[in-house]
Computed example of a mutant assay.
Amino acid sequence: MAKRQIDHAGHKDDTYVVSESLSDSGSKVEDDGVGENDAPAIFLCGKCRLPFGDSLSWAGSDDEQNQILLKRVNDNVVIGKEPFVSGTSEELRGLVVNLTCRGCGFNLGHMYMSTPKSLDYKRSVFCLMVENIESYVLGSPDQQMAAVDREERPVTLEYMDNVEQQMTKIKSLAVTVGQRLLEIEVDLQCKSGTT
C-alpha cells in the first residue's frame, strides 16, 4: 500500500510538505485548476487573517465536504498530536488530527492519518474547511482596498510626502490670512485714531 509522509525538518521556509507517492485513482477530489491559469491565491485564517498557504500547493477540493485540499502549508498551521476517529458511517471513518491556526487557535480543518480505501486521496493532505478560511487573489485591486480599512491603512513614504505638501500649503495659507488680518486691524486702528 502506497503512503504519503509529512516532512517538516530541513525545510528553509518552515513549510509542511506531503510527499507524492499515493495514486489518486478513484478519488472524489475535483482539481479545478487553481494556480495554473489564474493568479495565485493566498489562504488565511478566517479569524485572525494569518496567512498559512497558497494555491500553488493546490491538491483539489471536495465540494461534498466543503473543503479545499492543499499539499503544502506553512508553519502557521499547527498539526494536532492527538488523533481521533472521524466520520459517522463505518465506511467513511478515518483517524484524523485537527489543524489549527498558530496565531489564534482557530480550527482550520483536519488531516487524515489513516483512511478507509474510499478516502485514500485525503490521507496526509491538509483538508481545510472553506467556511473557516479566507482567501484573496494576488494582484486583485478590489481585494486590496477591501482588506485595509481607510483608518487602518499603513503609512507609506508616498502618503507622508503628500501630507507634508498639504500641511505646507495650509501653513502658507494661514500665514497669508494672519498677515491680512493684521493689516486690516492696523487700518481699523488708524481710522479709529483719526476720527
Rank of each mutant, 00 (worst) to 15 (best):
M1K: 13
K3G: 10
K3W: 06
R4Q: 09
I6N: 03
D7H: 14
D7M: 14
H8Q: 12
H8C: 10
A9V: 01
A9L: 12
H11D: 11
H11R: 15
K12Y: 09
D13C: 11
V17P: 00
V17F: 12
S23C: 14
S23T: 14
S25M: 08
S25I: 11
D31S: 05
D32E: 12
V34W: 01
E36T: 13
P40R: 00
C45Y: 01
C45R: 05
C45F: 00
C45Q: 00
G46Y: 05
L50R: 09
G53Y: 02
D54N: 15
D54E: 14
D54P: 03
S55P: 02
S57V: 08
S57P: 07
W58S: 00
G60N: 00
D63Y: 06
D63G: 08
E64W: 10
Q65N: 11
Q67F: 05
I68D: 02
L69H: 05
L69N: 01
D75G: 06
D75L: 06
K81Y: 07
E82C: 04
P83R: 03
V85A: 10
V85H: 06
S86G: 08
S86A: 12
G87C: 04
G87L: 04
T88R: 10
E91T: 07
N98I: 02
L99Q: 00
L99R: 01
C101I: 03
G103W: 01
G103P: 03
F106I: 05
G109R: 02
G109T: 01
H110M: 05
H110G: 01
P116R: 09
P116M: 06
S118A: 11
D120N: 09
Y121L: 02
R123S: 04
F126C: 02
L128M: 05
M129V: 07
V130L: 07
V130G: 04
E131R: 09
E131Q: 09
E134H: 11
E134L: 14
S135H: 10
S135P: 03
Y136Q: 05
V137A: 03
P141D: 11
Q144G: 04
M145N: 07
V148L: 15
D149F: 09
R150K: 10
E151F: 13
E151C: 09
R153T: 13
R153P: 01
P154E: 05
V155P: 04
E158K: 14
Y159A: 14
D161W: 09
V163W: 04
E164R: 15
E164F: 13
E164D: 12
Q165A: 13
K169P: 01
K171S: 13
L173M: 14
A174D: 12
V175I: 10
T176I: 08
T176L: 13
G178F: 06
R180K: 12
L182C: 04
E183T: 13
I184H: 03
I184W: 07
D187W: 07
L188D: 12
S192M: 11
T195C: 15
T195W: 08
